[in-house]
């Protein structure tokens, strides 16, 4: 089910205030988003579910400290990206300890340089997403979650285009690229 960003922010704010009734609806709303993000970041690895569950645990452990007015999408993305990175590092360490033979996500990446680049890109993407407005974030989130808001297709397509253009502009201005 697709939840608008304002609904998510209201749920997180209620949970941060101590309202336990917000726990289940927030869990239901965040799980598909976090699961899909982890899947994408870990290239569909079976460990993506573990990373997503770990990210959900961290999200709820920090929910009481969520600052009102902060973007929920950036918050979720930052914690999920961190968990995925931690999982990769853990796998790399395990691989180094045990030697070859353990199939890790990094095996599927072209080279260590590419892995490092992918990590930097993730961090940069999280930073740039934080500069977008709530409407753009909501649109991008809907696209990533594969959800279609209750809008005519043409309107939604225009919004997606507009959000991606702003993302591109924000990226270009921060990282001096075309």
């Amino acid at each position: 089910m697709h939840h608008p960003t304002s609904d998510l922010e209201a749920l997180v704010a209620r949970l941060a205030d101590g309202d336990r009734a917000a726990f289940d609806p927030l869990y239901e709303a965040l799980w598909p988003l976090v699961r899909r993000l982890a899947d994408r970041m870990l290239l569909g690895s079976p460990d993506a579910e573990d990373a997503a569950q770990e990210a959900m645990t961290k999200l709820f452990a920090r929910a009481s400290h969520f600052e009102p007015g902060r973007s929920v999408t950036s918050w979720v993305l930052a914690i999920t990206a961190f968990e995925c990175k931690t999982l990769r590092q853990r796998q790399r360490r395990r691989r180094e300890k045990e030697g070859a033979g353990v199939d890790t996500i990094e095996d599927r990446l072209p080279s260590p340089e590419a892995t490092a680049i992918a990590r930097d890109l993730e961090a940069a993407a999280v930073e740039v997403l934080g500069t977008l407005g709530p409407a753009d974030l909501e649109t991008i989130r809907a696209v990533m979650a594969g959800a279609r808001p209750d809008l005519p297709q043409a309107t939604f397509r225009k919004r997606v285009q507009r959000a991606l253009n702003r993302l591109r502009t924000a990226w270009s201005s921060r990282h001096d690229t075309d």
Binding site: L15, D50, Q53, T57, K58, F60, A61, S64
Partner: peptide
Amino acid sequence: MTPTDARRRSRRAYELSRMRLG
């Protein structure tokens, strides 16, 4: 970990953080 376990773990993490806050 089953989805129910994961949810329970998240809930426990939330309650622990509330206890810390208190």
